[in-house]
Structures are given as C-alpha cells and as structure tokens.
Simulated scan of single mutants.
Amino acid sequence: MNQLEKVYGKDLNGFLESVKKPNSRLYVRVNTLKATVDEVLQSLQEFEKDEDFPEAIYAKVRGPNKLESLESKVIVDKKTAESVMLGANVYPPGIKKIISEGKSVEVVSENGITVANGELVRLPGGKFMVKVYNSLYSSPKLADMKELKEGKIYVQGKASMYVARIVDPQPGEFIVDMTAAPGGKLSHIYQLEPRAKIIGFDHTYKKVDKMKHLLKKMNVDAQVFVHDSRYLKELGIKDVDKVLIDPPCSALGLRPKVYDKKTRIDLMNLQAYQKQFLNSAYEILKKGGKVIYSTCTVTETENEEVINDPRFEIEYIIRFHPQVHDMTGFFIAKLRKK
C-alpha cells in the first residue's frame, strides 16, 4: 500500500476502486498477415475500429449487471472468478467448493464476491462445471470464436499494443524479445515489420512449444528458443538493435481483480529479477541500441527504479492508469545504450 500511495497519493482510492472493474472496452488485435480488419468486422459485428491503431478493434463491456442471490453456491479461485466476472464458464480446475447442489447457482470468489449466476452441470466422471448465463459484466466470449482459433485475431489489451508501436521495428533490424511467451508482443512486432529479424526466448519448453504453434497459426516467421534470457551473452548473441523486456512483475495494474496480495518483499525480489534482464540487454545490445521495457504494474520499485541505470539514457516513459485512462495499469520506457 505504501508503494501504491507513493504513485497515487490522494487518488489511491480511485486506483483501488478502478482495478475492481474491467476496462470498458474488450480489445483484440486483427492479425493483418491473415485477414483485413474489414473482413474480421464483417463476422464480429459486436466489434468496432479503434481510434488510434488500425489493427485494433474492440467491443464494449457492459455492466455491472444485477445478479441473483441463491442458496446453491460454487466457490471458485481468484483467476477463475476474474474470468467468470466477464462471462467465462467455470471448469473443474477452478472450483474450490460447492455449497448445496442446485440447478441454478451463484458463482462466488474465494474472498466472497459474487461474480455470476449459472447452471451447475455434472460432467462424465462426476466432476462439475458451471455454464454461466449472467455475469457481473458481459462481453463477447472470445474463446469460442473461429477467428481466434484460425489466428486471424489475438486477444490483447490496448495498453499492451503500445509496446510494439514503441519498439517501432524497421526493415533489417535485429530485435530480441527476452520474455516472449505467450507471443502477443512478438507477433505484433512482426506484423508491423516482417522484414525485421526477430527472435524470442522463454526458459520453459512448454511455453516455447505453445508459442511455436501460435506463431505458425498466425503466419509469423520468427524463431523462438528455450533459454534463460538473463544469460543470452553465452549464446554469442551481440550487436542487437532493439531488446524488448516484458519481465515477470506484480501485475498490480491488471483488472478486474477480486483481490490481490503482494508484499514489499515480493516487489523487491521482482525488482532484483527484472534488473538481471536489463543487465543482459546491455551485454547484447550494440552501442546506441534500444531497450523497450514494459510491465503491467504501477509501482516505482518495478519500473522507474529498475530503468534508472547510468548505462542507459531514458528516451521516454509512458504510464497508463486504470482510473485515468480506462486501461490496464501499464508502464513502458524506451532506453538507449550509452
């Protein structure tokens, strides 16, 4: 709370209230390597064009909707509750407890917030799911859309779309995405400039495998590898033009939240980890090369205190605040290696 107060001062309550709600727009990025925006809009008629980015389209998020209070309740974990709040169904891994089985149920987060009403369905094998028919907020169910399955669209918030624009890829540039999974920002960079040489890394085989499938589906001709990006120098990578660092962070800017729990120690541990990526970027960049550093959090500990590094010149910083910009809380900085 002290960290948040440092950033928001008297507007702290405004920030805390805003992260309990979703953004008023649900964004997807049209993958123009496979479809035009107009083609996608013909089939996704709830969506409309964004004012700033030609590849961005959005649907309005409606709510809060009135929910019924019912005796039968399904208690779900934090991640499930935050998805269900926007209309997703409940699947067995997210269920913590069922109180009084009934056909219609109230879906409640583990900290007591009602997020939806739905129908309790028994699955083969005796497990349950909930088909949600009324959620606190409503938006199109993206998971079922064939355009998503075909790689014609990618679910990406508008704040996140700024990152590739700030990377500003140019033909022939050598660009490294240090923390590329799940592949959204990397595929966006390639979409903006397919003539750049782009490679991405993640330290887990499973994530890299998923990324490879995604990039193939999206017609993105970029390579991704399994490696810990804190040690890229050992692979002989050098003279890089631009490095994207989107490191693990406390995600305090993500919304909607039913709750969040982070300590000062968590933030300090994350900062130490984030600085290691910046050290690695310094080693592989050519002189005058650029780092684009982004997080979906709002603390100075994970943002300004990480990038205030005498080896780099800060070209500019952009911050998005949920209560001001109606977007995910987000930080983006562009740095130049001295």
Rank of each mutant, 00 (worst) to 15 (best):
L267H: 11
K290M: 12
N269V: 11
Y293A: 03
L254G: 01
P256A: 10
I265T: 15
L270M: 12
I245M: 06
E283M: 08
L270D: 06
K257L: 11
G253W: 00
A272H: 09
L285K: 05
R255G: 05
P256S: 08
Y273A: 00
E283G: 05
K257S: 11
F277W: 02
L244Q: 04
I265L: 15
L252S: 13
K262A: 12
K242W: 09
K261E: 13
D266M: 05
L254W: 05
I265Y: 15
V243I: 11
Y259S: 13
V291W: 02
L252F: 11
V258Y: 00
G288R: 03
G289I: 00
A281H: 09
G289Q: 02
M268P: 00
E283D: 14
L270Q: 07
D241E: 06
Y259R: 12
G289L: 02
L254C: 06
D266Y: 05
L267S: 07
K242S: 01
A251Q: 12
V291N: 06
L270A: 05
L267M: 15
I245K: 01
V291S: 02
S250D: 04
S280M: 00
I245D: 03
L252G: 07
Q276R: 15
L252K: 07
V291T: 09
K262Q: 10
N279T: 07
A281C: 07
K262L: 12
D246T: 10
V243K: 09
G289W: 00
Y293T: 03
K275D: 00
I292V: 15
V291Q: 05
I292C: 03
L278H: 02
A272K: 14
Y293P: 01
I265A: 15
I284V: 13
L278A: 08
P248A: 12
P248E: 08
L267I: 12
Q271G: 03
D260R: 13
F277M: 08
Y273I: 05
P256F: 00
P247G: 02
A272Y: 10
Y282M: 01
